[in-house]
Simulated scan of single mutants.
Amino acid sequence: MSWDEIVVVDWSAGNDTGPRPEADAIWIGAAGEEPVYCRNRALAESWLTERIEAALTTDRRLMLCFDFAFGYPAGFARAITGRDDPLALWSWLEERIEDAPKQNNRFDVAASLNRIFPGIGPFWGNGLKREIPDLPRRGSDRTCRWKQPRREAERLAPGAFEVWQLAYTGAVGSQVLMGLPVLERLRTRFPGRIAVWPFEPLDRPVALVEVWPSLIAKAIARANPDETIRDRAQVSCLARALAAQPDGRLEQMLDVPRDEEGWILGLGHEGALAEALA
């Protein structure tokens, strides 16, 4: 199992950040290439589409890695879609998320998800000025919490946050809500050409893979002591670390159960990834 190109994407759920490259935006890195800054998700989706088209045209195997969860804790997909299929949840979200460079409806969609369950929750973190019924600002205001709040991967990755938190320090839930619809559109645009890891066999020319650069945060910091934009450094470093792995080791990293929660590539192999940056 070999890959001709490995690309890492640092995602963002925020609004258009303007033409000047900055942190907390979308950064894309590929081994041996300068990082690409995308000021909004529409531009990032266009860049990804072109990259996939180029790989398919030249018959190259392409791995696209994204730093947000591909699944939710066990049972959530069935509660929403009636199926234990995380990709059905991707489709559900793509049909409901409205996205524009300066605004999106992620908080309202999260509130609609909360209304499916009794009480208040499990999503929290209303980051808007207006009040949104059924979406509390604080996690402590919830009366409905998922029976297992973290995915197994998050329980094993020190510092990983829950997917239910949508705003404030460390929040990752908004990235999931705004990222999965984009991946679903890519799957639809290239039917039969894209596989989603670990839910599907990697027998197609393009793979979508979940990563978390913070797995090797210390190694990235050592390799880039003068970098002022952490996101820019981590996409390049993780892409380089993954590309430097021998085929057998990368195959070991990819060899995980096809669990509905998904997984983080490289979890449990942090030493091998960090060593590649030494």
Rank of each mutant, 00 (worst) to 15 (best):
S140P: 01
K129E: 12
F199L: 03
D255K: 00
R145S: 02
G119I: 02
M1N: 05
V206F: 03
L166F: 08
D226M: 06
P205C: 02
R138T: 05
G170A: 13
G268C: 02
Y168E: 12
R189H: 10
E95K: 15
I220P: 04
I28C: 11
H269A: 13
L166S: 06
G159W: 12
W11N: 11
V235K: 10
I132T: 11
E227N: 01
E154F: 14
T57C: 03
F190T: 07
S174E: 03
F76Y: 12
F117E: 08
R142W: 10
R151N: 06
G159Q: 10
P86C: 01
R232P: 04
G262S: 01
A243Q: 06
A244Q: 08
W212Q: 12
R151F: 14
M178H: 05
T49V: 09
T228K: 15
N114I: 03
L56H: 05
V176S: 04
E34P: 00
P122Y: 07
N104R: 06
S2I: 11
N104L: 06
E131Q: 11
P35A: 15
R51I: 08
G29M: 09
V176Q: 09
G29A: 10
E251G: 07
G119H: 02
L238R: 05
V256S: 04
A195Y: 12
F199M: 05
I97V: 14
R187C: 15
A13N: 08
C144D: 01
F76Q: 06
T188C: 03
G268W: 12
R151V: 12
A233E: 02
E251M: 01
G32D: 04
E270G: 12
Y168V: 10
A54I: 03
R193K: 15
M63R: 14
P86R: 07
L215N: 03
G192S: 05
V256R: 14
C237N: 13
R222Q: 13
K129G: 00
I120M: 11
R20T: 13
G271I: 04
A171M: 06
A79T: 00
F66I: 12
L202G: 00
L128F: 02
A221D: 15
F68S: 01
E270T: 10
A69R: 05
A241T: 02
G192H: 11
D16M: 08
L215S: 06
I26S: 11
R39F: 06
F123T: 01
C38I: 05
P136V: 06
A88E: 09
E260H: 07
E275S: 14
D247K: 09
A42H: 15
C38E: 14
C65I: 03
I220F: 13
A244P: 01
A244T: 06
D85A: 07
M1T: 11
R96S: 04
W92A: 05
W124R: 01
R150A: 08
V256T: 11
P21W: 05
L277F: 11
P149I: 13
Q165G: 08
F68R: 09
A77L: 00
D99F: 04
E227G: 00
L89K: 09
L48Y: 02
S91R: 15
A276T: 07
T188Y: 03
N15I: 09
P118E: 14
A25S: 11
F66N: 09
I220K: 04
G262K: 00
A88L: 02
L254R: 03
S236I: 04
K147Q: 14
W263Y: 15
R145W: 01
W164K: 04
D255Q: 09
A13I: 02
I80P: 00
V206Y: 03
L128P: 00
A55T: 09
A110C: 04
